[in-house]
């Protein structure tokens, strides 16, 4: 075959493949989603105060998301490294940038689904309230924050994928990088919930930070993913 597939087509194919594997294996739905729910309940045990829970609900949702992100990224690359599928994709001449975007897209779909569940849990368990104008902010915040998380996660997941002992390195490398997302998404979510007296309008500058973050690491990942997965 002489024609090279475009980045978009590779990304779509890789994302569809990852999501199809998840649809058939249901590992994330059956294992990671319950884990995230469990974390939400555990937070309530640890904090043991209804007012505090309502106040910090936004941060807890994003912390639970970060923990789940680690597991989802490991799963995302486990399916690729088990049979050398990642190498096969490289040998097949697929654009690494396309693989990167595709895997990030699949992770993003799974994460957004998880976050919807977590926000419902926050409303039920932590008694937060969401109004119409807050909902617009929340949806924008979820989409921009999740884009950043998926891109960074896939980038560092690609590096730590593969041979033994590297899985433990993922949180050490990834968590410091996503700290701005945790800060930004938490502040924006608190504004959306108007918890702690925050106004909804306070949240929008943070969405700007989240968008910049996703753009920077999206570009960084497209440029560097090939170097990172090359063995």
């Amino acid at each position: 075959m002489s024609t090279q597939l475009s980045l978009g087509r590779v990304a779509r194919a890789v994302a569809a493949k990852d999501l199809r594997i998840e649809m058939r294996s249901r590992v994330v739905v059956n294992q990671v989603f319950p884990f995230a729910g469990l974390v939400m309940v555990m937070f309530a045990f640890a904090l043991d105060n209804d007012d505090v829970l309502t106040r910090v609900a936004g941060g807890l949702v994003w912390l639970a998301t970060l923990f789940s992100l680690i597991v989802i990224i490991q799963r995302s690359f486990a399916v690729d490294t088990a049979d050398g599928a990642l190498e096969a994709q490289r040998v097949a001449g697929l654009d690494p940038a396309g693989i990167f975007v595709g895997k990030a897209l699949a992770v993003m779909v799974q994460l957004v689904t998880l976050e919807i569940m977590l926000f419902v849990a926050a409303v039920v368990l932590y008694r937060v309230q969401l109004h119409a104008d807050g909902a617009v902010l929340l949806v924008t915040c979820v989409l921009s924050a999740t884009a950043g998380l998926s891109l960074v996660g896939t980038l560092y997941g690609g590096l730590t994928a593969g041979s033994r002992g590297r899985e433990t390195l993922l949180p050490l490398l990834m968590l410091p990088v996503v700290a701005p997302v945790l800060i930004g998404a938490t502040r924006a979510t608190e504004s959306a919930f108007t918890s702690g007296g925050a106004a909804v309008s306070d949240g929008w500058p943070w969405v700007g930070v989240l968008v910049v973050f996703a753009a920077v690491f999206g570009l960084g990942g497209i440029l560097s993913f090939g170097s990172l997965i090359e063995e």
């Binding site: 500058p205 943070w206 960084g220």
Partner: peptide, 27 residues
């Protein structure tokens, strides 16, 4: 491999640190 991987990580850190600093500043 070591050189390539670590060079990319070092340059990604250059992206990361201003973002961390700016978000903490804003926070």
């Amino acid at each position: 491999q070591r050189a390539r991987r670590s060079a990319v990580i070092a340059l990604l850190a250059v992206l990361e640190i201003p973002l961390v600093h700016f978000s903490v500043l804003m926070w």
